[in-house]
Design a protein around this nucleic acid. Structure first.
Lengths: 353, 353
DNA sequence: CTGAAAGCGCTTACAG
DNA sequence: CTGAAAGCGCTTACAG
């Protein structure tokens, strides 16, 4: 391991020397603090530019002992589900940056109750906070909340879905339409002609809007590549296994000879379970999300493909974005679409959420 | 933005106070330096454990001005190729950690000349270095080099491929066998019966060994799921377009009615080009790597699937591993397989190498 | 508008 | 074997 006392001329001390001022004044200029004559400011700015000076962020955070609070507002998770991965990613990012004085405040809401969102949001706004990371599941409630954020000049990033028309620091999540498109392409690769069933399962009317965007993309693919594919669709609003099976029995008997099924969310496991019970495993089945239960059916060959949305990376990237923007002062892209991952029984063991 | 002077009792000062010693002695114990009586060491260790003390890495690196040199030894890249991405990932990681006093020394060799590897390795070993990241393309030469590393106690990580039997800090790269398996599954999803052609294109005898592991995995899939698939194979050692086309013409006329082609590396673009020239775009074509030229044919529908090996992430992760191990003292997994990514014309625009 | 001085939490000679 | 003191590059009161 080398050791080396710095001999190079750099840092605030050198700037101060060259400008013939104290380092305190240099500091004022670096941070755009007032109380510096225009002339001195000019002189120092020029020197900074010439030197290509980059402040030492370690020393800066150490000396200032500055603390930033970031708040995260997402659905609460139940065991092994999707949002569990998201919060895991957020926490992993926090581990990496907490030494810079980043405090993470977590707020969760219940996807079945809009009010829980507003309640959590209210709590959140009671404490000081320098940036927010939110999953705006409920359009109205989320809109109210971000209006509050805006009036307090708190920057926020959308995760997993966005609110069309509402400007945020950044959106991090999937391109829903395209992911539906991808599902369609996979089916059409394996099925040149036949009947395809689209299944939406959700009691959430609000989040239904996500599913619809996937469905649109799915349909559009066959419109452009129209061939011998017929499409049927069913919406299932009661999400217990029994109701799902009844609904599927209904549609299957009404429309004989379904060859492939596209489930627009992670409930594909319920459909897989149904297919096994009815000995219909040979149908092509595609759905969403790398969840334990889904992978089980993938391994068995009941589910052919899962489309992954990288919830953990979403969480990780989101918090990092906030950090890069607020602490490091780095510019960020407006949109950061997650990859559309294709998971199969051959590659699932190497998959990273 | 909050500000807050620390009031909590923590840090070396507090340890020193509790142990009734100076902070210098505390420092000696923290870093296992000698020159401390066993009694004092015991006392201090206990206090450290009790407090759950974690040294402030920012302050530590700032005060010590310690510098670590990491060396990277990989093939030199030509424009937009695979290794270009790898070095990009390495450099991105370096950007993030250089503030900790990490210096990156880059060495490149020519994949067409084994000697260039040894030469670069010799150069590398002339300078001080705390860790090495290497792509061991040439087994013999790489083995000699890591023996040197071992005798100097320099830790090293393998990237992109490993040397079976040679223990390293860590291997970061694809699971070659499984990725061949994946290619086979995709083909079999789209082709229930027919003829499949395996194509190896490489003038490199050494790196041939990689391709072979992919081919093995590919074949094994059809052995397990044997059906109406016949396999043919061709090795092409002259990699100019003309020779490739001649070779393909030969095999195609000898074996009529090939339905699908699996190219075991990124040269799939050459085969795609050939198929276009002969108006054979309707055949299923699968190959490797997210390179511009390959994506061009993916968009056109000539290539059906590309398998991505995440070269950039390989580079990023590798350097981070070295950093985590050497600077942060964190334990690392022995193997870090990259995901086996499936890239299509529907999802390529969201793909990250 | 400006500067001297103390301090962030740790490390490093140096002296004993 | 141990400690007092200076210093890393920056920030923050405080005084002028």
């Amino acid at each position: 391991m080398g050791r080396q006392k710095s001999t190079e001329l750099s840092g605030v001390k050198e700037i101060a020397r060259r400008a013939n001022v104290s380092i305190a004044t240099v500091d004022r200029v670096i941070h755009n603090r007032k109380g510096v004559s225009e002339a001195t400011r000019q002189k120092i700015s020029t020197i900074i530019a010439e030197m290509g000076f980059q402040p030492n962020i370690l020393a800066s955070r150490l000396a200032s002992k500055k603390v930033n609070h970031f708040a995260v507002l997402i659905p609460k998770s139940t065991e092994t589900d999707y949002w569990e991965s998201t919060i895991k990613g957020v926490e992993r990012a926090h581990q990496e940056i907490k030494q810079y004085g980043i405090v993470l405040d977590k707020y969760f809401y219940d996807l079945n109750h809009k009010k829980s969102f507003s309640d959590a949001a209210k709590l959140l706004l009671k404490k000081h906070c320098d940036g927010v990371l939110l999953a705006p599941s409920f359009i109205r409630e989320a809109t109210d909340f971000i209006d509050d954020c805006q009036s307090r000049a708190i920057p926020y990033v959308f995760i997993n879905s966005d609110i069309p028309g509402k400007d945020s620091l950044c959106y991090i999540g999937p391109h829903l339409y395209k992911s539906g498109h991808q599902a369609a392409q996979l089916i059409s690769f394996g099925l040149k002609a036949g009947k395809v069933l689209i299944v939406n399962i959700s009691k959430e009317i609000d989040s239904y809007h996500h599913l619809l965007r996937k469905e649109e993309g799915f349909r559009a693919y066959f419109d452009n590549n129209r061939g011998a594919i017929k499409m049927i669709k069913i919406d299932i609003r009661d999400t217990d296994q029994r109701s799902i099976e009844d609904a599927l029995d209904g549609v299957m008997s009404e429309h004989q000879g379904v060859d492939a099924i596209f489930v627009t969310n992670s409930r594909v496991r319920s459909v897989a379970n149904y297919l096994v019970k009815r000995s219909l495993e040979n149908k092509i089945l595609i759905g969403y999300d790398f969840l334990q239960e889904n992978v089980k059916y993938l391994k068995q060959g009941v589910i052919d493909f899962l489309i992954g949305q990288k919830p953990e990376e979403q969480g990780y990237v989101s918090l990092m974005m906030l950090f890069q923007h607020i602490v490091m002062g780095v510019a960020m892209p407006k949109v950061n679409y997650m990859p559309i991952d294709i998971i199969t029984r051959e590659n699932y063991e190497f998959y990273k959420n």
